[in-house]
Design a protein around this nucleic acid. Sequence first.
DNA 1: GATCCTCGAGTTCG
DNA 2: CTCGAGGATC
Length: 675
Amino acid sequence: MTARVDELRDLLHRYNYEYYVLDAPTVSDAEYDELMRQLRQLESDHPELVTPDSPTQRVGAEPSTAFGTVRHEIPMLSLSNVYNYDEIAEWVARVHRLAGHEDIEFVTEPKIDGSAVSILYRDGVLERGATRGDGVTGEDVTTNIKTIRNIPLRISPLKKGAVIPGVLEVRGEIYMRRSEFDDLNRRRGEAGETLFANPRNAAAGSLRQLDPKLTAARPLRMYAYGVGQADGDLPAMHADQVALLRDLGFPVTDNAQVCITVDELWEQCESWLNARNDLDYEIDGVVIKVNDTNLQNELGSVSREPRWATAYKFPAIQKTTVIEGIEINVGRTGSLNPVAILAPVEIGGVTVRRATLHNEDEIERLGVRIGDTVVVERAGDVIPKIISVIEENRDGSEQPFSMPDTCPVCGAQAVRLEGEVARECVNVSCPARVREQVRHFVSRGAMDIEGFGSKLAVLFVDLGLIQDFADIYDLDWNRIAEIEGFGDKRIENLKQSIAQSNQQPLSRLINALGIRHIGERNARSLAHHFRTMDRLLEATREELEGIPGIGSVVAEAVYDFLQEPRNRELIARLEKMGLRMDEDSVDTGPTDGKLSGKTVVLTGRMESLTRSEAQELLERAGAQVTSSVSRKTDFVAVGADPGSKAERARELDVSILTEDDLIAMLRDDGVLNPE
DNA sequence: GATCCTCGAGTTCG
DNA sequence: CTCGAGGATC
């Protein structure tokens, strides 16, 4: 009995692979269905024989209400973009320079337009599938991933002797074929359902369905382009890793090409560009990677982009349309931002009606007039961008546009400060500005008040219920109860989430205040350094400037904000409302660690860590990271190409750490896991 | 003074 | 996503 079940599963896995991965079925659909029916029957008679990787389990799970989150052990990076031959040459030159030689192999492959995923196998069985998310945390879409037919539920190597790593994270792209997308949309049209704009949206949307049955009904496919985490030895060359994935039964692009010179790379890019329209899947460019993974590690990454890979992006689809008018938005900083109102035009399945013109200089650079015919594209295939004016289309009726010198909302003067691009409304309590500030205050990165979105912020400010941030904690609920759509339940929920938000740490409060140059990151630096609002209020320019990442301009902005009596009053009111005014106590790790209580200065480029990563780890170990070397400095950690700090460390006889020393100490102190 | 990198701010559509 | 500008470093 068990043997027959196993046999059926093996057969079905194989036929599935032939059909969905190789596109070359060896049995008829009827035969396949019959085997599946038999397996279902056996499993329902003997439930103890059901395994999670059984082909019957592709749609096994019940709809969920929300996706869990997943942390990517190795971050899923995004790629920098290059747009032409010269930019490719520049990128290649940089790799040559960083590597120290020019004998470097690159691999090119088409960049399929879909949705990136990470699929984790343990002992050959699919354990978890996750979206990319922000690169560090993604959504757990395991049940949906399992419904995709060309993704193996269990790895069965095609090649004898191929070793399956104990842990293997396959990275790839979920996409839809054009032909299957067209079918899907035709069916949706017939059923009176809304159509998907393009295969990418359809794939991304399908992957995030809460009911896996819906996902299962969509013609999704995956192709694998690389390995994330893995146990054991992998081939050193990227191309060989992809070949390994193929041998393990994953669909991979079989068009990867090894190139050495810029000309060879360019030839590949052009040939994909030419082939683009004849393919049954959408591609938006060509990925270029350094083949040698050891060199990849050496090159490392900056912020969220690897230095060892880039994407050649095809020229975006361009359309022409007419500028019907120019509107002015007033931002939370008071900046006047012109937006072009366009005659609606469809670009890549999406109807575009507006496009930002950024500022005065941009309008001048483009030379746009109201009534002009312009070329529009969607930058990065998302945000519409006006590229140029078609001057031949002018008939003389076009109206030149100049920025108003008064604010269109409050009528106050709008001035352009020396050296700045933006024109700003001088009225600090301009209604438009207050509205945007409140919007920012309640937003996710700031006080994060649930159920209090930008709609409500705008409504309450416009009704005069909120004049400054403190009013949020002192709302006139009787008046709100009279507004349509505000029942008892909603008011209760809102009251509660507002009340809860007063426990947000100082860093979020600082960010929420909307001080110029202070966003999420700098707010955190300030909170870490001062710990309490009282201490921050006493800060001098000098102390502010001593904080890493804060220079004279930012220090000045913070100081000025805090010296302004209105702002001090506001903060006092917030405190009276019961808002928390200090920071989470950081987990300083073991106090007996080698790094706890030490002052460390970083200089030069680290290979395995970015500066901010190193800083974060050091802080977690209880060390303080400063920017200049003095006698008070305990360690100077020196990376590649160190600056004058390393010299100064020698002069002052301060202990010098190499990158390896630093890593070892971080590990000893338990803040960095051994690889 | 130049260069690289990071951060903030504004933005579009469904 | 993309631009502009500030910060760090050489």
